[in-house]
Simulated assay, not measured.
Amino acid sequence: MFIHIGSDEVVLKKDVIMILDKYALVSKDTSDFMQVAKEEGFVQGEDGMDKKSIIICDKKIFFSPISSVTLLKRSNFLKNL
């Protein structure tokens, strides 16, 4: 199954490791992780986009203009949300 994450991007549900809110970047550990991922070329679709959430997949990291709550609902990870 696919999850539409905005900006004409879709990811496989089975590849999603974590969906983070944009405020997670405030944490030093998360910002350090994202800096290393950016330097190594794992970060996709960051330029000029309103970032509301971060989707960490198996081999790539995406920024999305869609909120993390909406992405969670789309993914059906939790059925009673």
Results as ranks from 00 to 15, higher is better:
Leu81Cys: 05
Val11Arg: 04
Phe42Met: 11
Asp21His: 08
Val11Gln: 09
Leu25Trp: 07
Phe63Thr: 08
Lys14Pro: 02
Phe62Ala: 09
Ile3Ala: 01
Asp8Val: 06
Gln35Gly: 09
Lys59Asn: 08
Leu25Val: 02
Val11Phe: 09
Glu40Gly: 05
Asn80Gln: 13
Tyr23Asn: 15
Gly41Arg: 10
Glu46Gln: 07
Val10Glu: 10
Cys57His: 10
Lys38Leu: 03
Leu81Arg: 08
Ala24Glu: 08
Lys59Trp: 08
Val43Tyr: 07
Asp50Arg: 13
Glu40Met: 02
Cys57Phe: 06
Glu40Ile: 11
Ile3Thr: 02
Ser53Tyr: 06
Val26Gln: 15
Ile61Asn: 06
Ile66Thr: 05
Ile3Leu: 01
Thr30Met: 14
Met18Asp: 14
Ile19Tyr: 02
Ile61Thr: 04
Lys28Val: 01
Asn76Arg: 11
Lys38Gly: 10
Asp50Leu: 15
Val36Asp: 14
Val26Asp: 15
Ser53Gly: 06
Phe62Asn: 00
Gly41His: 03
Val11Trp: 04
Ser75Phe: 07
Ser7Cys: 12
Phe42Gly: 02
Met18Glu: 15
Lys59His: 03
Glu39Cys: 06
Val16Met: 11
Asp29Cys: 12
Gln44Thr: 09
Asp58Ser: 13
Ile66Ala: 07
Asp32Ile: 10
Thr70Phe: 09
Pro65Ile: 12
Val36Ile: 15
Thr70Met: 06
Ile19Ser: 03
Ile55Gly: 05
Lys28Arg: 13
Glu9Thr: 06
Val16Phe: 02
Asn80Lys: 08
Val36Phe: 12
Lys52Arg: 04
Glu9His: 15
Gln44Pro: 04
Leu78Phe: 14
Ile54Trp: 00
Gly45Lys: 00
Val11Asn: 04
Ile55Val: 03
Ile56Lys: 04
Ser64Met: 12
Phe63Pro: 00
Phe77Asp: 07
Phe42Tyr: 12
Leu71Arg: 07
Ala24Cys: 10
Ile61Trp: 06
Asp50Pro: 00
Val36Ala: 12
Ile55Phe: 11
Gly48Gln: 01
Phe63Gly: 03
